[in-house]
Design a protein around this nucleic acid. Structure first.
Lengths: 200, 200
DNA sequence: ACCGCGTTGTGAACAGCGTTCACCACGACC
DNA sequence: GGTCGTGGTGAACGCTGTTCACAACGCGGT
């Protein structure tokens, strides 16, 4: 194993990282394999040793982005499950707002959140992990009686969908004043949570 | 003005309709101006007489799609404002589910829902009309005291975002059983409405 | 020390894309 | 009947993703 020479080694990760950079900086439209390759000091066909497809590359990027989201979720350390739900929502939207283009890529080739038939021992894909975290908080809130939830899966989907909607709508460029945007984020979560409040 | 001969006249509307057909049938990826043109019995450059751009074409298509959505909203004849809100939500998701690809196109080049600075006399763009309809129902519900709403705009955005999220999530291909999908649609609306229920 | 092998990247090529431009045919008008 | 203008054509440009035959390089074996 020779020392990595002056010329950078071409790894799948390096390619994905470079693609991420391009998209975050110049948008998805600007991502072409040829430009990406020359940016890496290499010609286009060289990429195909590490990536089967452009779609494959975007999928890998989406995966990485979901992992980053999982990390954000893991950084939430609220004890109260309801507070945790709120924090997840904010983290989700924050992630989306940080780079709208990357957020968009996450859903270009949709991952299956499907906690359906997991092979048990295997590492869960990021998307599933992220949803599992959100789901866990909902389950805790239901178990503790803080929220009146019949079907935790349905409730988690409800919250997730709603937050996803907010994240999406905020990127539509309808330039709402930023205090309205911030208010919207909390409003959606709060109203749904209020809808789940136990009737004492 | 001669009779329109056997050969179909090439209109902007005809082009948009053909594009709609292609996208609905074979997806956005399959839409190329060249193929679209040959489908219309014409060569590609001929399209540029009626369309400045591919983007222009997609924008026109999005506009048409928003108009269709407005028509759906107009068909809602519930008297009770809360029932109207629910009906709007269902209509929105139904529209999205009928052709996911077309729904996606609606937001490719985002329209501004901005009821901001409308030129007063001018015809409102479909996106704005659609939002206005939804907004109206929310205002009515607030005025009638059926819902406890401080800021109707915020509430309308809340509902819209949430429904948009549902519409989007349902297309992620995470194959939820369809009864869960249906339940999700109502659940989101109902929980938010519950969150706005006046505390008697 | 040399030879061969396997890896990794190259250069050229293919098909298709959006878009532009010079041209041409045809119907309407004087 | 000749002229004009509109609307469509054919060819071209530069770009894209992708494939393929080939070349350069370093390692292992003799």
């Amino acid at each position: 194993m020779a020392l990595p020479s002056e010329r950078a080694v071409l790894t799948r990760d390096a390619i994905v990282a470079a693609a991420r950079e391009v998209i975050a900086t110049s948008g998805l439209e600007a991502l072409s394999l040829r430009r990406l390759a020359t940016g890496l000091g290499v010609t286009a066909p060289a990429l195909y040793a590490h990536v089967t497809d452009k779609e494959d590359l975007l999928r890998a990027l989406a995966t990485a982005e979901f992992d980053a989201l999982v990390a954000r979720f893991a950084a939430v350390d609220e004890d109260d499950p309801v507070a945790r739900i709120r924090a997840h929502g904010r983290a989700y939207v924050a992630h989306a707002r940080e780079s709208p283009e990357l957020f968009h890529v996450m859903f270009l080739f949709p991952p299956d959140l499907g906690a359906a038939d997991l092979p048990e021992g295997r590492e869960l894909p990021g998307a599933t992990q992220a949803f599992a975290a959100a789901f866990g908080a909902v389950e805790d809130a239901a178990a503790s009686g803080a929220l009146a939830i019949d079907d935790p899966l349905l409730a988690a989907l409800t919250l997730w969908s709603a937050m996803h909607g907010v994240a999406t709508v905020l990127q539509l460029g309808l330039d709402l004043p930023s205090e309205v945007e911030d208010a919207l984020i909390d409003e959606v979560t709060d109203r749904i949570l209020a809808g789940y409040r136990p009737s004492v």
